[in-house]
Design a protein around this nucleic acid. Structure first.
Lengths: 195, 195
DNA sequence: AAATGCAAACCGACCAGACGGTATAGATGC
DNA sequence: GCATCTATACCGTCTGGTCGGTTTGCATTT
């Protein structure tokens, strides 16, 4: 009864017009517009056009709603990664470089959602557990299999640094500089270590 | 009247027992113990031993209190950086490497406070403006003057990545790995670019 | 040096509003 | 008519902030 439809959406869009997704979209809009501290149920109600009852029917609590946002984000990220990596192994491209691309692309596309996740995390860190698990799963073997694991790790860290700094509004890098950094990162993980 | 003692404390510890600092300490303790979402005025009141009136006398609003936390943190960071860099130029050490060390040391020492700042930022991003300004001031010329600016930027980004991931509880790096990364970063910014 | 005056510092009860959540009634499709 | 949703009114709590009053440090007066 608590989860009339279970947490993971079973019927993506068939009969159900994906009410949950509409609500999640609204929540994302609220966060990106007013900041993650202003993510309140009433705000989502206002933004989504649904009533409070409707929202709370689909997400029985605020925590559930945030979990919904997080899990949708993770799903998206995992798809991005898996898809890109699959393509990379098919074409023989460098997996580390591929992952860097994915991270930076993700940064550009899902900035707002990631912010929400971040905010949620600061309040209840356990919400980040699945995120951490996903990151570990994807990265560890890539790093381990890289010709220069330390360098691979550094490159991924730098990409993360770029991403996170951007999320926090801390990055003051120009697009040109960022392009240079990106190119250099790819180069660093592509050639075998000089040492 | 609004700032009977002005914002920057004039008398560090002489006559005035630095009430503001006592309150800020309490706020930091609250955040590090209960998480940044639980940073409430009443919690600070309980933790500090002052009354609500007393706390709100020194920081007229919660926002002011958070600003106080941020500005004290910035002051600390700036001191750390300036001191280390001064020493570096005196001994001829690599400034980029020095800054990396400072970033990572800061991560270890002020983890809790930085978390609070981060959390505060996600609610009202403008609170991070001074942080951004400080980072820009210190970094830009270092990067510009480095023999390999792009590499320097990458190294600093990686250090940031490490720091931020840790703050968010996202990092799953072992101490050994971290040491390796650190050493390699130093090495990367120490030798002239191979290309 | 004791008394006086005054403002800065501090106290704690109180309030208004926001927020998360519930209860219950109404709509809609099968 | 039953299950699945959606809408509205409402409640209890928590929290930021106010306000009148009390204490404390300190200079001035006598």
């Amino acid at each position: 009864m608590t989860d009339a439809r279970s947490i993971a959406d079973s019927h993506p869009d068939t009969v159900r017009p994906a009410t949950r997704d509409v609500i999640l979209d609204a929540a994302e809009r609220v966060v990106s517009r007013e900041g993650s501290g202003r993510l309140t149920i009433d705000a989502v109600v206002r933004e989504s056009g649904f009533s409070k009852g409707g929202v709370l029917y689909n997400f029985p609590s605020k925590q559930a709603l945030i979990e919904g946002m997080v899990s949708r984000l993770i799903l998206q990220a995992q798809e991005d990664c898996d898809c890109a990596l699959e393509q990379a192994t098919a074409t023989g491209a460098n997996p580390v470089a591929t992952l860097i691309h994915v991270i930076l692309a993700f940064k550009r596309t899902h900035r707002d959602v990631a912010m929400a996740v971040l905010a949620a995390a600061s309040e209840s860190p356990e919400l980040l557990d699945p995120v951490r698990a996903m990151m570990a799963r994807i990265r560890n073997d890539i790093i381990a299999n890289a010709p220069d694991p330390v360098m691979a790790r550094i490159a991924l860290l730098a990409a993360d640094g770029l991403h996170l700094a951007d999320l926090l509004g801390l990055d003051m890098i120009t697009p040109d500089e960022q392009e240079a950094v990106e190119a250099r990162l790819i180069q660093l993980v592509s050639e075998p270590s000089p040492k």
